[in-house]
Simulated assay, not measured.
Amino acid sequence: MNKVVLATRNAGKIVELRRILAEAGVPVELLGLDAFPHIPDVAETGLTFAENALLKAHAVAAQSGLPAVADDSGLCVDALGGMPGIFSARWSGSHGDDEANLDLLLAQISDVPDGRRQAHFACAAVLALPSGEERVVEGTMRGVVIRERRGTGGFGYDPIFVPDGESRTTAQMSPDEKDAISHRGVAFRALAQVIAEVLS
């Protein structure tokens, strides 16, 4: 069975992609970066989601000698000119402080009326081979940012994002419901097909 490395130490992302690969019938063994403690974290210095994902995937493919998958994603709020975008995880200053990021974002758009709070989640997912070959796919999920947190599932900005056509936030959905419509679910399902083609 082919081995593929997902360039993350986030156990939730690994479980998510394993589930999507299994549902797509793609026979690969997915490993996380915890299996490669010698590989350092890659600085996300790109200016787009795709650039950041490519940086991570190529670095991990080169250092592991295996095909590598990486993704970068974030919330793009229309009233903030598309921000926080690639800075979503560190919007409040420190990386991954979900509560502080939520507080800051809600404060920044507190004066924006309900009809003008459109936003979308974007995800770029990449497969990079040790040879340097690369494939990029993207997914989006449009919706609105609400004024107060609702729900305890998911992570990041999920408690304040209601997808188009829904009355619930993504934090109020089951993992399967969220996967079916989410930016990362869309991108990872497209990437599963790419992995099947490239590694078959």
Rank of each mutant, 00 (worst) to 15 (best):
A79M: 14
A57S: 10
R90G: 05
H58V: 02
L105M: 12
Q108I: 12
L33D: 05
A119L: 07
L33M: 13
L105A: 11
P67Y: 00
V26A: 09
D98C: 01
P67N: 05
L75Q: 10
S110P: 03
R90C: 09
H58F: 00
I109N: 05
L129S: 10
E133T: 10
I86A: 09
L54P: 00
H38W: 10
L75D: 08
A24E: 09
I86S: 02
V77K: 07
S88C: 04
H38A: 14
V60W: 00
G81D: 04
L47T: 15
S131G: 13
S64E: 07
V69T: 01
D34E: 15
C123V: 09
E134C: 09
G132R: 06
A100Q: 05
L129H: 06
P130D: 04
V42Q: 02
A50R: 03
V60Q: 06
I86K: 02
A124T: 10
E134H: 12
A57R: 03
L66Y: 01
P67H: 01
V28G: 13
E134I: 01
S73N: 14
D78E: 14
V112D: 11
F87S: 15
L47H: 15
A128M: 04
V26D: 09
R90A: 11
G132M: 08
E51F: 13
H120T: 03
L105Q: 11
S73K: 07
R90L: 04
E23S: 14
K56F: 08
F36D: 02
E51D: 12
N52Q: 09
L31E: 12
A35V: 10
F87M: 15
A124G: 13
V42F: 04
I39H: 02
E29P: 00
L75N: 08
S92C: 09
L102P: 03
D72N: 12
E44V: 12
E29G: 10
T45M: 09
V28Q: 12
V60G: 04
G32Y: 11
G132V: 08
A68Y: 04
A35H: 13
G115P: 06
A62D: 09
R90Y: 01
A50N: 06
L33P: 07
E44H: 07
E51S: 06
L127H: 10
A57P: 03
L31W: 01
S131A: 14
V69P: 00
A107K: 14
V136M: 05
L31M: 13
M83E: 15
G93H: 12
F36A: 01
W91F: 15
P40Y: 05
P67I: 05
S73M: 04
A122M: 08
P37H: 11
L66M: 10
A107P: 00
T48M: 03
D97Y: 02
V28S: 11
A50G: 03
A122P: 03
